[in-house]
């Protein structure tokens, strides 16, 4: 089982800073997950029904989602039979392998679809209070750092104070905000913003929209219209439609991803507030069941705390301690493997 070794090697090659930030941000997720896994292995020496039930609970407790968990457990049971595994410790690498497999299922890369020859338009959608405006502010900051010209469109004309919030970010980051009055048509704001961003020869246009619950048909139609207006002005835009998801959200995240996906062809997910939660397992369910890649994660309140998401890195983060134990036991493991073969 050289899986973790492979991962570890990969990470030593990576730029330390990104990995550090990622690891720090995931401390909570990791501690709780690893802690419980270790408890599980300590409590159950042998692999039996009770062991699986407990494992099921750990995964569900991380918001992985019932159907994905059930699928995973079934696969694990098969593996246990196939490989004739009896000791619980032996199953640990199989679990992480399966988890990484599910996360990496689509094989798509998580890079943003940036345009070289024209302005890149990114539309942000999501339910209320997930952190759309904050994410846009953070993204504007990182694009600006890269030397790009950025324009933000204040498309949340509904919520009190939303336009002011984006403007505050504009001032902080030093980026222009195109706005109209509160209550005006968001599609009209987008039209204005495109014209204005073109005139400014902007590289990136970030479009904010009002938060809306996905079961409100009228509001979802409004969002479709916003997207239509953008596409009419720039045929292949928006180049990215990013669904912003709150990492503390439970199973409803699936419904959000599905409905927003249908209405606006979501191309990627931004998972926010991942730093505070012991969870984030919903990433797995979304990847596994809906096949939408997670492109960015929010790991804190600072301007630099928005990071690109890497599935392998995520699993590594979760299993850091287990990895270290395993690589120490690597020799022993290989021996076991050899005798099996």
């Amino acid at each position: 089982m050289g899986f973790f070794k492979k991962l570890k090697d990969k990470f030593t090659e990576q730029t330390e800073t990104v990995t550090e930030k990622f690891k720090d941000g995931l401390t909570k997720t990791r501690d709780s997950f690893v802690g419980r896994m270790n408890e599980l292995f300590a409590q159950y020496r042998t692999v039996d029904e009770d062991f699986f039930e407990e494992l099921e609970e750990i995964l569900i407790g991380a918001d992985v989602g019932v159907s994905t968990v059930m699928e995973l457990i079934d696969e694990l049971k098969d593996e246990v039979k196939l490989r004739n595994i009896k000791e619980s410790r032996e199953i640990a690498p199989v679990i992480s392998e399966k988890l990484a497999e599910k996360l990496d299922k689509s094989g798509e890369d998580a890079d943003l679809n940036m345009q070289d020859d024209q302005m890149t338009v990114i539309l942000f959608v999501g339910v209320n209070g997930v952190g759309k405006t904050t994410t846009i502010g953070k993204m504007a900051h990182s694009f600006k750092e890269e030397g790009k010209t950025v324009v933000m469109a204040a498309g949340d004309t509904f919520r009190a104070g939303a336009i002011e919030q984006l403007e505050a970010w504009g001032d902080r980051v030093g980026v222009d905000v195109i706005k109209q009055q509160a209550g005006s048509d968001p599609a009209a704001v987008m039209y204005d913003a495109i014209q204005s961003a073109r005139a400014k020869k902007a590289d990136v246009l970030l479009c904010d929209t009002a938060g809306r619950l996905q079961n409100k048909v009228n509001l979802m139609k409004e969002l479709e219209k916003v997207k239509r207006v953008i596409s009419r002005e720039i045929p292949d835009a928006p180049h990215e439609v990013l669904l912003v998801l709150d990492a503390t959200t439970g199973q409803n995240a699936m419904s959000q991803a599905k409905t927003f996906g249908e209405a606006t062809e979501v191309s990627g997910i931004v998972l926010t507030k991942l730093d505070g939660t012991a969870k984030g397992g919903i990433v797995l369910a979304i990847r596994n069941e809906l096949n939408i890649p997670v492109k960015l994660v929010g790991l804190g309140e600072g301007m630099d705390d928005l990071q690109p998401f890497d599935a392998e890195q995520f699993v590594y983060g979760l299993f850091k301690e287990l990895v270290e134990e395993e690589t120490g036991e690597e020799k022993e493991e290989e021996e076991i493997e050899n005798t099996r073969e």
Binding site: D63, V127, L213, Q214, D246, N252, A253, A278
Partner: peptide
């Protein structure tokens, strides 16, 4: 819409502040 973490959030706020009640939002979803 909060998931499994709702327990930790509530527990922690309650321990540190002594809550007297809860308001559940976005139930129209």
């Amino acid at each position: 819409m909060t998931g499994q973490d709702a327990v930790n959030v509530a527990e922690s706020f309650n321990e540190q502040l002594g809550l007297t009640g809860v308001v559940l939002t976005k139930l129209d979803g």
